[in-house]
């Protein structure tokens, strides 16, 4: 039941936005947040599998690139796939960092300071 609610919301949003790149970036951002917040079973089912799984689509990206390949624009198809992969990874990393910040802002500050000192020592 929980899964169904998330899936309906996600897929209706995807249908209304109708832009694969934007939708995938948004879903990856939310899933990265959920992944770093370490939610329990039910909320993960609602937001992670239901909402994010319904919002993002793999087959849309592949069908776009297959359309480009059939028009003999192979370079554009490779560009499209790499851009969507990199956007997904970057937005997931961003979501991961946001989730860390929400979980404990103080520890996040310490982590940033630690990182800053490490970078300064190295260069």
């Amino acid at each position: 039941m929980v899964l169904a609610i998330g899936a309906i919301a996600g897929s209706l949003l995807r249908w209304q936005i109708d832009n694969n790149l934007l939708v995938n970036a948004l879903g990856c951002l939310v899933l990265g947040m959920i992944f770093s917040l370490r939610y329990r079973k039910d909320s993960y089912l609602l937001i992670g599998i239901g909402f994010c799984g319904g919002l993002t689509t793999f087959s849309g990206v592949i069908s776009d690139s297959l359309g480009l390949i059939s028009n003999q624009e192979i370079i554009n198809a490779i560009k499209l796939i790499t851009i969507s992969l990199i956007t997904g990874l970057i937005s997931m990393a961003l979501g991961f960092v946001i989730g860390l910040f929400i979980r404990s802002p103080k520890r996040f500050q310490l982590l940033l300071l630690d990182l800053y000192h490490q970078v300064r020592q190295r260069f």
Partner: peptide, 26 residues
């Protein structure tokens, strides 16, 4: 078409979990 392609197939295949697996292994 809306039922099968937009609803069923679009929700059956997911991009976010795929990126999550790649991210985890990275």
């Amino acid at each position: 078409y809306l039922f099968f392609c937009v609803g069923f197939v679009g929700t059956f295949g997911t991009f976010s979990t795929f990126i999550l697996e790649v991210f985890e292994s990275l």
